[in-house]
Structures are given as structure tokens and as C-alpha cells.
Amino acid sequence: MYIKEFTPLLVVILLLLYLCLVRWRSAKYKGQIGEKCVSSILSTLPSNYYLFNNIYLQNGTHSTQIDHVIVSPYGIFVIETKNYKGWIYGTKHGEYWTQNIYGVRYSLQNPIRQNYVHTRALQELLGVPLDMFIQVVVFMDKAELKGEQNDGVVYLSQLQDFVLSHSVERLTDEEVESFTALLLSSCVRDTNMEKRHILSVQQRIQERQRLIESHVCPRCGGRLIVRYGAYGSFLGCSSFPRCRFTLSLRDS
């Protein structure tokens, strides 16, 4: 009798535990954990490094979400955080990278390309040359980077040393203060911004897919043609080497 009376309660508890597990495993939640780890490390930098976390910028109908930005005398660091595990393969110019977990493969957007888009949005806002920006992609230490070594792609445990290794002053104190103030005033703080950003990204993905299906390069507008490489056939832009867009045919 006692067990029967409490069976509904046990079901509710088990359901809540299951929902908590699903939330824990969700990509969004794992991403937030990764960003908090990076933010915690970056918060220990010297006082002349001005840190911004999870910022949104609006440019017309397009929005940009950037995980972390540091404005410092040694440059403006634009940081993309990836909380993945397993083996990670990818090249600088490839459209997608691959995550391999116990033989199961998943595609993810090229984080270097993602971060470059974020950097250009910041460049347009601040009006400074591209060489003033230092682009960084951070993977958690549980990931294992394989294949081609890409500049500016580091593990979490290497991040602080990587930032501090840039010791040549590029910006004056006045420029650092000016860019910091401009970034503070430009960050969108609307509570609905995340939803609008997600919708904007979905629309861009759909438009990109439409172009690819029409054999149009989504990066430069050139014509996509089938090419053959060491790892099989892929789509490449006819404007190569000016445009280095590639897409594996299994991802298209």
C-alpha cells in the first residue's frame, strides 16, 4: 500500500531527473558550460585587458553573437568557444569540420570561419584594420585535435598563455578606452535578442542551402563544380584560388 501511494511521486521524480539529463546533454547547455570555463580563465588577466562575454551586435537585419572579446593594448581578441569531446578534424578553409566519437562522425561548422565572420562584424563596428584582431578558437581539453594544425586554435589549458604571448603593443591607452566604450554602448541587451538571433541564423542557413542546391557559391556567388581530392569528391568554387569554398558531397 505504501509503495502504491507513492508511485506517482516516483514517476515525477524520475521524469525530472530525465529532463535534467537531457538538459545537461543539450548542445546549448554544454556550450554555456564551455563559455563559463573560458570566462573564468580570462577574468584573471591583468586589469588592462577588458573582457566582454556573450555579446550580441545588430547590423541591419543581421545579428552577430560573439562568445568572448578582449580589448587590450596588444590587440583585440575575438574568441570562439567549442565544448566538444572526441577527435576533431578540420582545415582552415573547409566549410565543415568533423567530430569523431567512438567511430560515430558528426559535422560541425568550421569554427575558424565562424570566428572570422564575428571578427568582420567587430571590424565594421570599430573601424580598425583587420590585423588589429587576434582570432582564437578554444576547445575544451577533453577534445583531441587531429590532422592539420591551425593557427589560433588552442585548448582551454593553453588559452591564457596564448593571450599573454602577444606582447607587442598595437593600440594606445586612448584607443583601448575608446573601443571599450564603443563596444559597451553597441552591445544589444534586449532580452529577446537571443531568439531573434537564432531566427536570423536559421534564415541564413536556409538561404545558404538554397544557393548550394542551385550550384551557386554561398561565399562569393561563383559557380560550384565537382572536384576530386585525396578524400573523395567535393564541391568547390570555380573562382579558386580567389575563393576557397569547399563542401564535401556527403555534407551537401
Score class of each variant (00 low, 15 high):
225 I>P: 01
131 D>I: 01
61 T>V: 06
99 Q>I: 03
242 R>W: 10
3 I>C: 02
71 V>N: 09
168 V>G: 00
3 I>N: 11
73 P>R: 09
230 A>T: 12
162 F>T: 12
100 N>W: 02
9 L>E: 05
114 Q>I: 13
134 I>M: 08
159 L>H: 02
138 V>P: 02
84 Y>S: 02
36 K>D: 11
6 F>A: 05
147 G>F: 10
232 G>W: 11
155 Y>Q: 13
52 F>A: 04
146 K>V: 04
238 S>C: 10
201 V>H: 07
8 P>S: 10
67 D>K: 09
236 G>C: 14
51 L>E: 13
127 G>Q: 05
98 T>P: 00
148 E>W: 08
206 Q>T: 06
204 R>F: 03
235 L>Q: 07
190 D>N: 15
171 L>D: 03
180 T>I: 01
215 H>Y: 10
203 Q>H: 13
248 S>P: 01
72 S>D: 05
41 I>S: 04
153 V>Y: 07
161 D>L: 10
199 L>E: 04
178 S>P: 00
18 Y>L: 14
141 D>T: 01
175 E>Y: 08
239 S>Y: 11
192 N>Q: 13
65 Q>S: 00
202 Q>N: 11
128 V>E: 08
61 T>E: 14
41 I>N: 01
225 I>T: 04
210 R>Q: 08
223 R>L: 06
34 G>I: 01
51 L>N: 12
231 Y>S: 12
157 S>M: 08
2 Y>L: 13
160 Q>N: 04
155 Y>N: 12
96 Y>R: 15
60 G>Y: 10
66 I>M: 07
67 D>E: 08
111 P>G: 00
192 N>R: 14
85 K>P: 00
165 S>Y: 05
126 L>A: 08
230 A>V: 12
121 A>Q: 03
54 N>T: 00
197 H>L: 04
204 R>Q: 11
43 S>V: 00
141 D>Y: 02
228 Y>G: 00
87 W>F: 15
